[in-house]
Design a protein around this nucleic acid. Structure first.
Lengths: 134, 134
DNA sequence: CGGCATCCAAATAGATACTG
DNA sequence: CAGTATCTATTTGGATGCCG
């Protein structure tokens, strides 16, 4: 059977390419693969760059986790923490230029996520009328 | 998407778009955001679709985790389990067509991962020669 | 408000052993 | 080979309280 997912087993170049892909994606996942990092970066792209704002935007995250994620992101050069030593000590986070290299990833993920959500929804609809078991 | 840090804060459409992005990416992350799912799918694209082969390809995964990830992936329509009830009971996993919708995501992640790895490497190099203060 | 420390609960992962 | 079961170790996360 010839399908689109059939690949020539003897194609060494392809095999090596896949190994590279595996390593690269593993690397990417290690850096931004957490549950929250991408979400935080996206939320910051909104323009609300205060701690509490962020916590509101990224639904479900706790202060503790947000704090630690923020620190990691700062450490890895994705964001910059700005402390204005005025009176009520204004603290802002902003995206470092490096975060913008993620745009394609975010775009791809967004597009896929939207389609995936639709797929899930239609599956749920047809599921509730034909099946009542989980 | 354009320059995120130059957008008018009052742009409601943009704000809503970002909310959508947040939801979509959250959704995507929920489905494929685990540490292994994407790796497994990529590994399967290699053509080695047996359990043990997969475990070898996806370095670091245990049989238990691979098993459970495989089950989840099957449940969510990413892969198909094929059991040939021949003599030594051949079991194969193959990518369902739905997995191919992830191609753009994988491509973006791969590209970014490669660049990110290079960035990390150069940072390590310059770090060992110049001292940074705290 | 921003954020860290502590304690504790829950989720996750590894090792090992065992089955068909 | 392709898992599953169990038990435990590690990680992660939430809640709370305090501090600047």
């Amino acid at each position: 059977m010839k399908e689109e997912n059939e690949i020539p087993k003897a194609d060494k170049a392809f095999t090596e390419e896949c190994t590279t892909v595996l390593a690269a994606v593993g690397d990417a996942l290690y850096a931004i693969g957490g549950k929250w990092k991408l979400m935080i970066i996206i939320a910051m792209a909104r323009g609300n760059n205060r701690f509490t704002e962020l916590q509101r935007q990224v639904t479900g995250i706790s202060a503790r986790v947000l704090s630690s994620e923020l620190k990691e992101l700062e450490l890895n050069g994705f964001i910059v923490k700005k402390v204005s030593v005025g009176y009520p000590v204004l603290i802002e986070y902003e995206l470092a230029p490096y975060s913008h290299t993620l745009e394609k990833v975010v775009a791809a993920l967004t597009e896929w996520g939207i389609q995936h959500r639709q797929k899930i929804k239609s599956e749920l609809s047809s599921n509730s009328s034909s099946q009542s078991e989980s």
